[in-house]
């Protein structure tokens, strides 16, 4: 890809509780201002990869045991989570982890905790409200009481308040109605384009993710199995079959599913 990517993950291995090996030899890159998708089924290792980058792993007793993670040319795999945020990487964790007893506005403001330029925070709050006008209406409501879509907006907006160079988005579509998913993804694309925030997007919803991303990686069982431009991936037969649910003749009918499994080409 790029000569000097914003983020370079080089051959990392992640171990939980000192014994459980969950990631094996994962390497990926995110270019400056890029929008990269990380696809895979449940338990493939997407969230672990993101947590390895943001170093939230340590809070779950996980550890990067091999390999290197570089951000803007500096190693970050030994830095603690707060330091990683200060350097410009914010993770939006899956499951809409809002602070439920804080009001929408307070919740958004916690995102600016690591910043030194406190006089610009107010301006950025207005910026977040301009992307998510619904949050402006609900600014004094506790986040525990707003709808799921609004909660997802709060956590994305909160991440934006840290003014990151790279946002790690973990399953923003989870548990949301298709229309809302579309709305959230539209905003993600706008943030990427207008605010120049690079985005690494972990998703199970491969169709949606490949629609917005320019490059994609596919994970299975803690390894990367395939990567390429989003268009190339969309046309790959295995991806079409296993991740997009399509065959050559279009939508798959489950009436015709045979009992044997199609062999994935990338497994040898």
């Amino acid at each position: 890809m790029n000569q000097n990517p914003l983020l370079r993950v080089n051959n990392i291995e992640v171990v939980y509780e000192h014994v459980i090996l969950v990631l094996k030899g994962v390497s990926l890159e995110v270019p400056e201002g890029g929008l990269v998708a990380l696809l895979g089924a449940n338990g493939a290792g997407k969230s672990t990869t993101l947590k390895a980058i943001s170093n939230l792993l340590r809070a779950e007793r996980g550890e990067v045991t091999k390999g290197v993670i570089e951000f803007m040319g500096n190693r970050i795999d030994r830095k603690d989570a707060a330091e990683v945020v200060r350097r410009g990487i914010v993770q939006v964790m899956e499951g809409r982890r809002k602070f439920e007893h804080l009001t929408v506005e307070d919740d958004l403001l916690t995102g600016a905790y690591s910043r030194r330029d406190t006089h610009l925070v107010k301006k950025d709050l207005d910026l977040v409200y301009s992307y998510f006008p619904r949050l402006a209406e609900r600014r004094n409501v506790k986040t525990g009481y707003i709808s799921g879509g609004e909660q997802q907006m709060v956590v994305i907006g909160r991440a934006l308040m840290a003014r990151p160079k790279l946002m790690l988005l973990d399953e923003p579509s989870m548990g949301l109605a298709p229309l809302l998913v579309q709305e959230i993804f539209d905003i993600v694309v706008r943030l990427n384009r207008e605010e120049k925030v690079a985005i690494l997007l972990a998703e199970q919803n491969a169709a949606m993710a490949l629609q917005v991303a320019r490059y994609g990686y596919i994970m299975e069982n803690g390894r990367l199995v395939l990567d390429g431009d989003a268009d190339t991936l969309r046309d790959n037969e295995d991806v079409r079959e296993f991740y997009l649910g399509l065959t050559e003749i279009g939508k798959k009918s489950y009436r015709n599913v045979k009992h044997y499994k199609r062999r994935k080409r990338w497994l040898t």
Partner: peptide, 10 residues
Amino acid sequence: DDHEAALSVG
């Protein structure tokens, strides 16, 4: 409210 989420915002 949420340790881990607090950690994630720095």
